[in-house]
Amino acid sequence: MQVPAPVEYERARSVEDALALLERRGPEARLLAGGHSLLPMMKLRLARPQVLIDVNELSDLAYIRVEGGDLRIGAMARHRDLLESPVAWEHFPIMREAETVIADPLVRNRGTVGGSLCQADPNEDLSAVFAALKAQAVIRSTSESRVVSMDQFHQGPYTTAVGPAEMLVELRVPIRPGSGSAYEKVERRVGDWPVGAAGAFLRLDAGRVAEAGIGLAAVGAEHFRVPAAEESLVGEEPVEEAFTEAGRLAAEGCHPVTDQRGPADYKRHLAYELTRRALRRAAARARGEGDQPCR
């Protein structure tokens, strides 16, 4: 049994309570949501917070609903909630496809959407998903609530825009008719982090790409995105040549590093191959073909 260093524990009863505790306990306090990244790091003593503020009672942050033209996802929605959400599947099939390949059912029952994004692991599937969807994050402190883009949210590996006395409370994804999305991941074994993964979002208008989003995980893409690849698609017909060019630009625009999951050249190849595959399927969905969400 791996045991963490001594740590204090507080239980937050509400968002306000959690924010007040964060303010009072200072920068060495950490929020405990699903705990599936934080607790293993604590057991290995790589993380040593002085105090854990447990936010698992904040079930009012566990919603997934449509509001104001957005899909709104509370930070405490569990992976399983997103996986099984009919409304998320209806508008953004990429979400279920990504959740299906995140960890295992035990982890998905506990782990939260907000926790995953705040961990900001460069391999995180959901970071790529929300980057591809150009989502917005709602961040709160005791005094204010602010809305940031995903580019602003992700500041680098394990670093986000969420300050020490702040908390991510919601993700907003604008619902766009005529769109399709898909997720592609290569893993060494079910439940593993991706060796490489790509999410794609396409909105078509009059047979051409009106809007494109590509999110890459685990391949060193800045803010999980490859803007050049996205831009190359806009105004083009959603055909194989366009996907191949976007894949090429995605591979060019990322900075994978070699580790035991695979060498950099292979990961770069995956950025190319998986981007193409995700775009293909996203386009088919946008055209109303193939594997469609049930409406």
């Binding site: 060494r188 060796v195 070699t258 580790d259 035991q260 695979g262 060498p263 292979y266």
Partner: peptide, 22 residues
């Protein structure tokens, strides 16, 4: 035979697996 190793083998450049991948 991880995905990376299979892909590299197909490229004619299989990996050495007892050391850190390079």
């Amino acid at each position: 035979l991880t995905p990376a190793q299979v892909w590299r083998a197909m490229q004619g450049r299989p990996l050495r697996t007892d050391l850190a991948l390079a």
